[in-house]
Design a binder for these strands. Sequence first.
DNA 1: CCAAAAGTGTTGCTTGTACACCCATGT
DNA 2: ACATGGGTGTACAAGCAACACTTTTGG
Lengths: 237, 237
Amino acid sequence: MTSEQALQMLSQSYKQYPKHYVAVDCAIFGYEEGEIKLLLYPRGFEPSIGKWSLMGGFVQEDESLEQAAFRVLLQTTGLRDIFLEQVAAFSKPDRDPGARVISMTFVALIRIDKHDKDLVRENGAHWWPVTKLPAMVFDHLEIVEKALDFLQQRAANELIGRELLPDMFTLMQLRNLYEAIFQRPFDPGNFRKKALSLDVLERLNVKNTTESKKGAFYYRFVKDAGDKKVERMVKFC
Amino acid sequence: MTSEQALQMLSQSYKQYPKHYVAVDCAIFGYEEGEIKLLLYPRGFEPSIGKWSLMGGFVQEDESLEQAAFRVLLQTTGLRDIFLEQVAAFSKPDRDPGARVISMTFVALIRIDKHDKDLVRENGAHWWPVTKLPAMVFDHLEIVEKALDFLQQRAANELIGRELLPDMFTLMQLRNLYEAIFQRPFDPGNFRKKALSLDVLERLNVKNTTESKKGAFYYRFVKDAGDKKVERMVKFC
DNA sequence: CCAAAAGTGTTGCTTGTACACCCATGT
DNA sequence: ACATGGGTGTACAAGCAACACTTTTGG
């Protein structure tokens, strides 16, 4: 048997199997006004008209799941090169009443101040605080819960914020971000020491004087030193 | 517009999108002779004839990814009700030269002594120690690396062994399992204290006298108390 | 002066780690 | 007797959590 014949046979043999619609759903998180917010757009038709939906799209022939997710992100926020990671696949045969769709969920972290607000407005999209989410289509609530869990896991294992905060930020702003993610207060002194001990922050010679009388130094994340340190930010949970 | 019409429209609108072959690949781990082993079967045709492959299968119309994975597991090992969890999706358009296949990877943990050896032999499958893996088809090496990473992560965050060890086991056997997973020695005294502190093991009034002169008590995992404690077994890495 | 945040220090507790030590027993 | 693993205890270091305390400055 030649290689060509074998390949032929192989391709033939695939034909007996069903094909499926494959989609990506993006849980796009941002940070604004002390809250973690999720970008949702309203579904304009039945079923589930009026309910809100994650940004999603179908996977094309020639693209990977990641490429599809990046495409969706670019189309809806105008942003490239953003943090994007697989979370989990949702695949119950009846999860979408319109058709059998297998969906891969991604978490995206973006800077709300940097995204294309007009583009978002075009879609009728809206940033929802994760503490006050509206009713969502299908299994999107379950998906969002998994995505939030992923976000907490991430924030616990390493210092995040590079993708959510401005280039320069104070340690209070960073702490507020963590308090928003974990929905609990952190001791200011201990948080400062822990964050600085990780060796990923760089103090600038500029102070923010708008949020405190004394003024707080701005910090920024150091340009990735290549070696990814995975240190623990939060103990348990 | 009635709900029926809308549903119709919705179904119509899906038609413009491509469908894909969706598969599950199972990284089936077992523990035998002090080693973590992976179940692979030989590919009998080109391309990549002679190379080894993960147990996999295509997702049918009416089943979820999890159901497909359970089906593959049952077909190849004869086992039901086993530990099975999503790891990651692999979706590069050209990852399988035969056709464009999107594959979800699952990790399965099974007790080698309990599986159906005849069924495995039928498929020509073989248990490979993860330290001496053969050449594998396509991107399966990459998949296995991710799966092994998942296994370590799991073992670090909670006490595993329920799915890999016999019903009764000594603490040395449990430690040897961990040494196989992390490929490094653990201090016997410290490992014992840590494992027992997690409150998931129950000492039996039976001793194993074959592996030491003094004899060591057998332990077993307590029937799940419902509340899942996620405590850390291993610090960092 | 007071309030509020910035920033540093102290103390007690928990946990991990290395290692010493006795126990039981088959050879 | 001795080697081997079973099992417990100790001593030290690291990390966390709670909180005291000083600094700075706008109102």
